[in-house]
Measured scan of single mutants.
Amino acid sequence: HNLTITQGKLFFHYNPKLCLSEIHKMEEVSGTKGRQERNDIALKTNGDQASCENELLKFSYIRTSFDKILLRWEPYWPPDFRDLLGFMLFYKEAPYQNVTEFDGQDACGSNSWTVVDIDPPLRSNDPKSQNHPGWLMRGLKPWTQYAIFVKTLVTFSDERRTYGAKSDIIYVQTDATNPSVPLDPISVSNSSSQIILKWKPPSDPNGNITHYLVFWERQAEDSELFELDYCLKGLKLPSRTWSPPFESEDSQKHNQSEYEDSAGECCSCPKTDSQILKELEESSFRKTFEDYLHNVVFVPRKTSSGTGAEDPRPSRKRRSLGDVGNVTVAVPTVAAFPNTSSTSVPTSPEEHRPFEKVVNKESLVISGLRHFTGYRIELQACNQDTPEERCSVAAYVSARTMPEAKADDIVGPVTHEIFENNVVHLMWQEPKEPNGLIVLYEVSYRRYGDEELHLCVSRKHFALERGCRLRGLSPGNYSVRIRATSLAGNGSWTEPTYFYVTDYLDVPSNIA
């Protein structure tokens, strides 16, 4: 807008934040220059609390790290170098490059900038070799853009010569660093050979998330399962459950009422301010606690030095998902009996873990797994792929695949051998790939016309006998059925096997 004052003059007093240069501009645009008398524009009460600059400061050096910015700028000295009290560095987070010096300023003089007072450097006698002032900004957020400017702080001049310097606002972004852990990993099994893994992005990506790394490792069953005799009275049979499938998407929606109208769909109840505040506090606490764990609990591995020492970490090797089922080394339970199943799973520490690289999504279907087997899954978020990966501390989750139908069934015939004193040795093959492992066998036998009897055969007993022995049988026709019990439950009964026990007292003698 054009402003013209045809008559009258300007009068400025007691404006401590208004620089004289701005008042002189007002004289020019209003056409009143030359009308004012000496005392109409006070030299001592206008701009006496402001830094009124008329020179431009330029930054000469900028260096960044993930949490620091090192700045240096060209030296500046007023005509009387004693008038320079120091520099004021202003900075704040700036997602967009549209910041002005006066953003967030209120009537009390406060604003949204963080201000650092910096002492002037030592003055050199040689004007050509003056030290460049600077400042190291610490405690910054990774991968965050900051708006920065600097200006001088000078003393009051009796001659009211307006001098000083100020830089333009520059924008500097800190470097990326390792992201925080992925949030809320959930693993479920939808079949006997697959596990579905879902997660949420890290709360602090500290860069642009480029991919996720998912490692999985087959877990050995508890050692007590191999040692305890679950045929003993009072000892509860062990059981394991597989990871249940995901709930429906509708039930997972946030901010939804727990109660549904019987007449149909209901609208979600909005969260109160107290609920939102509580969630923010919980989120802040979780982030602080995660940072504490990362800094205190997890110790970084030592990389190899120039002395030739090897990095103890196993090298990563990509495998196809079809090879995942046989990740671990199978060892027989008892070496003397080769027909026992290889369900003991000690994992070799030198073995390469299978892994998958996930790009542009937060889910993965891990296939080719062994049925009813526990897996430990390790999830890392990465925001750099080359020249070397920059990934987060791992988040861990466990899951067990679903049982395989008929995996616990005894394959092959049940054979028998009759000894003296009416002892019958029953023999059968253990299931080759049971659900988890076989903890015991149930032997059901009966003599024709009598009630059915049951015998429990422990895992250890089966390994020693290759089956079991029935003792003290009365003469007669017998039928026997056997079924295995694994961590997933009972298998199917075998087809009945028949044998006849004679009275050993009636056996004919070869003595003449």
Rank of each mutant, 00 (worst) to 15 (best):
W493T: 10
G306L: 14
R400G: 08
P312K: 03
E495P: 07
S262T: 11
S363I: 12
T333N: 09
R481W: 06
V334Y: 09
Y396W: 06
C269S: 05
R318V: 12
S304Q: 09
F419V: 09
K361L: 09
E388W: 08
A220S: 13
R459L: 10
N206D: 01
S315H: 13
L232S: 08
E221D: 05
F337P: 08
G308R: 14
A336N: 04
S248F: 12
E282W: 03
E389V: 12
T485G: 01
E430F: 11
N208T: 01
V296L: 04
Y259V: 14
S268Q: 07
A488M: 08
R286H: 05
E388P: 05
W493E: 03
E279Q: 05
C267F: 04
V439P: 05
L277S: 05
K357N: 13
S257H: 06
E420Y: 14
K287P: 03
P387L: 11
I410P: 13
D311Q: 14
A488Y: 04
S203P: 05
H416D: 15
P332S: 11
P300C: 12
G374I: 04
T502M: 14
E247K: 15
T340M: 13
S458I: 03
Y230M: 03
F298V: 02
E227H: 13
N339W: 07
Y230I: 15
F462S: 07
Q275P: 02
P338V: 08
N360E: 14
V324Q: 06
I209C: 15
Y500M: 09
T373C: 04
S367K: 10
H416K: 09
T303G: 13
R446L: 10
N383L: 08
A399Q: 03
P434F: 06
T347C: 06
N421L: 10
A405K: 09
Q252T: 15
R313M: 05
C266R: 09
V214D: 00
D291G: 02
G374L: 10
S392W: 00
E249L: 15
S486V: 01
G467D: 01
K287S: 03
Y396H: 14
T272M: 04
F226H: 07
W216E: 04
G322K: 15
R316A: 14
H454M: 01
H454G: 15
G489H: 06
P332Q: 06
Q275D: 05
E217G: 11
G374C: 03
E495T: 15
K278L: 05
L379H: 01
S239M: 03
A336V: 15
V443H: 00
F355C: 14
E217C: 10
K460F: 06
F298L: 15
C231V: 01
V297C: 06
P496Y: 08
F246Y: 10
P475W: 13
E389R: 09
V331K: 15
G306C: 05
D311G: 06
Q380C: 14
E221N: 06
V345L: 12
F226P: 12
N326I: 08
R471W: 05
A484N: 00
S223M: 08
D222W: 14
F372W: 06
C266K: 11
V329D: 03
Y441G: 01
H352Y: 13
D506N: 14
D261G: 02
F372I: 04
V297E: 02
E224G: 08
S367W: 12
F215Y: 04
I410V: 13
Y500L: 08
K271A: 03
C267V: 03
N435E: 01
R459F: 10
D385C: 10
Y500N: 04
Y500E: 15
Q380N: 11
E495F: 07
S458H: 04
L453P: 05
I366Q: 05
Q252V: 11
S341F: 08
R370I: 14
R218F: 04
A220T: 09
R390W: 11
E350V: 13
S342L: 07
L437E: 09
E247I: 03
Q384A: 15
R400V: 05
L440G: 03
R353Y: 04
S223F: 13
R240T: 04
C266F: 05
S367E: 12
N339A: 10
E465D: 05
E260G: 07
V424A: 05
L426V: 15
R459C: 14
R447C: 13
S251H: 13
M402A: 12
A335R: 12
D222K: 14
L453C: 03
G322D: 08
E362F: 05
E265F: 13
K317I: 12
D222E: 08
R471H: 11
S304A: 15
L487S: 10
S492T: 09
P238V: 07
R301P: 00
N339I: 07
F215V: 11
K302L: 11
P300G: 09
G306S: 12
G449T: 15
E417L: 09
Y498K: 14
K278T: 04
A407M: 06
S251G: 05
T307N: 10
L235C: 10
E417F: 10
S341A: 09
A463F: 09
N435R: 01
R319V: 05
V327Y: 10
Y445R: 02
E389A: 04
R459P: 05
I209S: 11
W428K: 01
R376F: 10
R301W: 07
A463H: 05
F337I: 12
D250V: 08
A336D: 14
N435Q: 02
R446S: 00
K236L: 09
P300Y: 04
G449F: 10
D261P: 10
A407P: 04
V324T: 14
F289P: 01
G368W: 12
E260P: 11
V424C: 11
V423W: 11
I366G: 01
V501L: 07
V327W: 03
F499C: 14
S304G: 04
I418H: 04
Q256V: 10
Y478K: 01
K361I: 11
W216G: 14
R447I: 15
S251F: 11
